[in-house]
């Protein structure tokens, strides 16, 4: 089932990319990133059957980092919302120097 798993992983990742490119809502963007991370996790798990348990260890790391990212990211979104009353990315151009 390796081929199918990897194919599924690629499809889910692509859907995540398309979501990032098409959505404006910051929270949904985050969720899309989570979807991409999940797709990668699936690849790790699938390949761990071929190459050993290290893949599963990496999944744990990915989840941890995803949790940290979600925590900080959502905190930032809350902070921005407090100032701007919006989470629409097109209204936010603070990155412009």
């Amino acid at each position: 089932m390796l081929a199918e798993s990897l194919a599924l992983s690629a499809v889910l990742f692509t859907i995540g990319v398309v979501g990032v490119l098409t959505r404006r809502n910051a929270i949904i963007l985050f969720m899309c990133v989570e979807l991409m991370l999940n797709a990668v996790n699936l690849s790790f798990v699938a390949l761990s059957k071929l190459y050993g348990a290290t893949g599963q260890v990496f999944v744990i790391f990915v989840m941890t980092v995803a949790a940290a990212e979600a925590a900080v990211g959502l905190a930032i979104i809350i902070a921005i919302f407090r100032h701007r009353q919006t989470v629409h990315l097109d209204d936010i151009n603070l990155l412009k120097g």
Binding site: M1, L8, N38, N41, L42, V59, I60, A66, A67, L74
Partner: peptide, 26 residues
């Protein structure tokens, strides 16, 4: 799918941490 790929522990964590914790935060 994780469970089916013989990664039962990862499957459990997926439910607990991802679906349970992270998405709840969202």
């Amino acid at each position: 799918l994780y469970v089916m790929l013989d990664a039962q522990f990862i499957g459990a964590i997926q439910v607990l941490v991802y679906a349970g914790a992270i998405m709840v935060v969202f």
